[in-house]
Amino acid sequence: MALAASAVASFEWTVDAARELIRLRYDNHDDFEGFTASPSQCRRKWYSLKYGYNNLKRLDTIENPHD
């Protein structure tokens, strides 16, 4: 489920949320070994994937006369 931009903008990190993020990262540590992309590269890729997904969703809801 996609979050609305206002929901994302109003998100605040609680102590429990931060602990959960740390736990998830710890549990998935092996998946990050050897992964050489920088944080900014990951961020750009994430937003690119998100944009592409939202664009496909938008196109899927528009009636296409050429199907």
Rank of each mutant, 00 (worst) to 15 (best):
Y53H: 04
A7C: 04
L56C: 05
S10D: 10
T61S: 14
W46C: 06
T61F: 12
S10Y: 08
H66F: 14
H66A: 12
D16K: 13
R44I: 03
F35K: 05
S6H: 14
K45H: 10
K45S: 03
P39Q: 05
A37T: 02
E12I: 08
H66K: 14
N55L: 13
D16V: 11
Y53K: 11
C42S: 07
F35Q: 01
N64P: 01
P39F: 05
L56R: 10
L24K: 08
D27K: 08
D67F: 07
L56M: 12
R25L: 07
D60I: 08
Y26H: 09
E33F: 02
A18L: 14
R25Q: 03
I22S: 06
W13H: 01
D67C: 10
A18Q: 10
V8L: 13
E63R: 10
D30P: 02
S38T: 15
L21R: 10
L56D: 13
S6G: 07
L59E: 07
A4C: 04
A18D: 06
P65A: 01
K45Y: 10
W13L: 05
R58W: 13
E63D: 11
A18V: 12
Y47S: 03
E12H: 07
F32M: 05
S48H: 11
L59H: 08
N55Q: 10
A9V: 07
G34D: 06
E12K: 10
F32D: 03
F35I: 02
L24S: 06
A7N: 12
R43V: 05
D60K: 14
D31S: 05
R43S: 08
S40Y: 09
Y53L: 06
S6Q: 13
F35P: 00
A37E: 07
A4Q: 11
P65D: 01
Q41R: 12
V8Q: 09
D60S: 14
C42L: 14
A7Y: 06
L56F: 12
D67K: 09
D30W: 10
L3W: 06
W13C: 01
S48I: 02
A17K: 10
H29Y: 09
P39T: 07
G52A: 11
A7F: 06
D31V: 00
G52K: 08
V15K: 14
A5I: 08
R44N: 11
T61R: 15
A9H: 05
D60G: 04
